[in-house]
Write a protein that binds this DNA or RNA. Structure first.
Length: 240
DNA sequence: GGTGCTACAATACTTCAGAG
DNA sequence: CTCTGAAGTATTGTAGCACC
């Protein structure tokens, strides 16, 4: 294994601790015996290997390594970093968006380009989940916006059908927005004359469900906020 | 049994504020 | 400058229900 180009992080301003950690990892990357190709390095693992490294420093250092294509985020089982031992290829830009958004985008493109013919059933959800290597829950989160956009509909038996070509003013292939983790954090939702974030609403005494359930209802199932807050969990009310 | 969908707890990662 | 803890996000596996 060889690293032929000068990493960009050497040219940036780093805190001493971050610089120390990045250089330590960089040296290990150059030494195949220490980090094998494809080896997964978890965040919790790094402070154990480098006892002087804080988790904040690890986060900063790993982002720099990712920027330089020396690591990539693997969106399964949480986000981890995979060292590319052979090619040092820059990770797919697709990995910059959440996995569910990536899945939705690919399916949207397949509908638009005719891979899934209009008015015909798309493959079963379990097959699609298997193809993308994601869980059913993630797949459903990903395709939920396609139902709202009218690209997918359900037939009498609940099967998902590719409904139409691109809707008027619709989303163009490959043009999904860059979604950041913090993007939803500051979004406020109004009910009972108040405007709060979902996190704040989840702590409101009028909220009968957990934060995760509330988020799922509001963001992915498009429930009205009041209904999402006041409908107890474990009901089928959201299906209709 | 196959399929679609909802709900939830658990886990891992990210970011920020504040303290030393 | 560095570290810690809290808060928040992303994703998972699994359970359960309905329909054919």
């Amino acid at each position: 294994m060889t690293v032929e180009r000068l990493p960009n992080f050497l040219l940036r301003g780093l805190t001493p601790l971050e610089h120390r950690l990045v250089m330590a990892l960089y040296e290990e990357l150059r030494n195949e015996a220490k980090i094998a190709p494809g080896h997964i390095i978890s965040y919790p693992g790094l402070p154990l290997r480098f006892r002087w490294a804080s988790h904040y420093g690890v986060s900063s250092a790993m982002w720099l390594l990712k920027d330089d294509g020396l690591a990539e985020t693997v969106p399964r089982l949480g986000t981890r970093f995979v060292i590319e031992g052979q090619t040092w290829e820059v990770p797919r830009s697709d990995l910059c968006i959440p996995l569910r958004a990536y899945v939705g985008r690919v399916i949207r493109e397949r509908i638009i380009d005719g891979t899934y013919p209009a008015h015909e059933k798309i493959p079963p959800a379990r097959l699609l989940a298997d193809e993308f290597g994601v869980s059913l829950a993630t797949l459903h989160s990903g395709i939920m916006p396609l139902f709202r956009e009218g690209l997918l509909k359900r037939d009498a038996h609940g099967h998902s059908i590719a409904h139409t070509q691109a809707p008027t003013g619709g989303v163009q292939p490959g043009c999904a927005p860059h979604i950041t983790r913090r993007g939803e954090l500051t979004t406020e939702y109004a009910a009972w004359g108040q405007s709060k974030t979902l996190t704040q609403w989840s702590r409101d005494p009028r909220c009968l469900v957990t934060y995760a359930c509330l988020k799922s209802r509001v963001l992915y199932q498009n429930w009205p906020l009041k209904r999402a807050l006041s409908t107890p969990a474990r009901t089928r009310a959201g299906a209709g």
